[in-house]
């Protein structure tokens, strides 16, 4: 294969991301046209909307014009972050999604970082003691938490918290409070649930990756020249074992988001997952659609970011 530069690699990734974004938008456009009845009007007309709101929407989305015009307007609106009016709240979908997205990130970012760190730590621990009792115990613990339905583990924590008493089990703040301490108290259980359910996959990835690296010849060479075994582990093996982790973390972002939706629902955390849950109950299609697009965009963009980083730290990937 011809030598590829970083810019070609980057261009390819960006194009794929743009294509993904268009697939998502087009899919949404089509999906709401398979609805029974009068699909186009069903999406934006609701008995709850006022006549003026309806009229404004109709012009904005070109509902009385040919389908291809509608499609172009739909893409334009979606790219501008305009997903119509919520059936239930009667305000723009975007105005509900933005604060929910912020709340989700407050929970999801620390949860992701802690699970990755915990996964790397337990993975290194396990690989270094391969096939010992400690290794098996670490792996089995990780697998057990991973097999638990997120919402069920959350339910168990609520049961325990209520039994002990004094630990908040729902929401982001107590009524009237905005202190960071209060936020952290509310965050404790959802964060714990997310970390426990998700660190296991990183443990297994790290363990397998490190195990492969430890069987490489250059590790043997390092031993032969008399290097200290801790030094071999931390300066020769672990950095190389981390490389495949980057792309695996990116692939698993979608799963993290899924977990966040379930955890937010269990703990009534006012994030985008809880918003999705409520919108299912309200049959609030525009809200569901907007939330779906935003969530998917975020994951696709995070993947692009991971690809960019991966290309920088491991130049070999550019030649694949």
């Amino acid at each position: 294969m011809a030598a590829a530069s970083y810019s070609t690699y980057l261009a390819r990734r960006v194009i794929l991301t743009v294509v993904s974004v268009f697939i998502i938008i087009s899919f949404n456009f089509l999906l709401f046209r398979v609805l029974p009845g009068n699909p186009i009007t069903l999406l934006y007309r609701s008995p709850r909307l006022t006549f003026n709101q309806e009229k404004a929407l109709s012009i904005e989305f070109g509902l009385n014009r040919p389908e291809w015009v509608q499609y172009i307007l739909y893409v334009k609106n979606a790219l501008e972050g305009n997903f119509g009016i919520s059936y239930y709240y009667k305000v723009s979908v975007t105005s509900k999604i933005i604060p929910a997205l912020e709340n989700s990130l407050i929970l999801l970012i620390p949860a992701t970082i802690i699970s990755i760190l915990l996964g790397i730590y337990t993975g290194v621990f396990s690989a270094w003691r391969e096939n010992t009792k400690a290794d098996v115990a670490v792996l089995q613990t990780a697998m057990a938490f991973y097999a638990m339905p997120t919402f069920w583990l959350g339910g168990i924590f609520i049961l325990i918290a209520i039994y002990i008493g004094g630990i908040p089990v729902a929401g982001e703040y107590s009524v009237g409070s905005t202190s960071i301490i209060n936020l952290m108290e509310h965050m404790a259980l959802p964060l714990l649930t997310l970390v426990l359910v998700y660190y296991g996959q990183f443990t297994i990835m790290m363990r397998n990756s490190l195990r492969d690296v430890l069987s490489e010849d250059y590790i043997l060479t390092a031993y032969a020249k008399g290097a200290d075994s801790k030094r071999i582990l931390y300066s020769h093996a672990v950095p190389n074992a981390m490389l495949p982790m980057i792309s695996l973390i990116a692939i698993n972002l979608g799963l993290m988001v899924t977990g966040a939706i379930l955890v937010e629902t269990v703990f009534s955390w006012p994030g985008i997952g809880y918003l999705i849950y409520q919108s299912i109950g309200h049959l609030d299609y525009p809200m569901l659609q907007g939330a779906f697009i935003i969530v998917t965009f975020s994951v696709v963009l995070a993947n692009l970011l991971a690809d960019i980083i991966y290309g920088l730290v491991d130049p070999r990937i550019r030649y694949r």
Binding site: A250, L253, L255, I261, F292, V295, V299, N303
Partner: peptide, 9 residues
């Protein structure tokens, strides 16, 4: 890559 559960919902 995409969160399949959201898609399913």
């Amino acid at each position: 890559v995409i969160p399949t559960l959201v898609f399913m919902i």
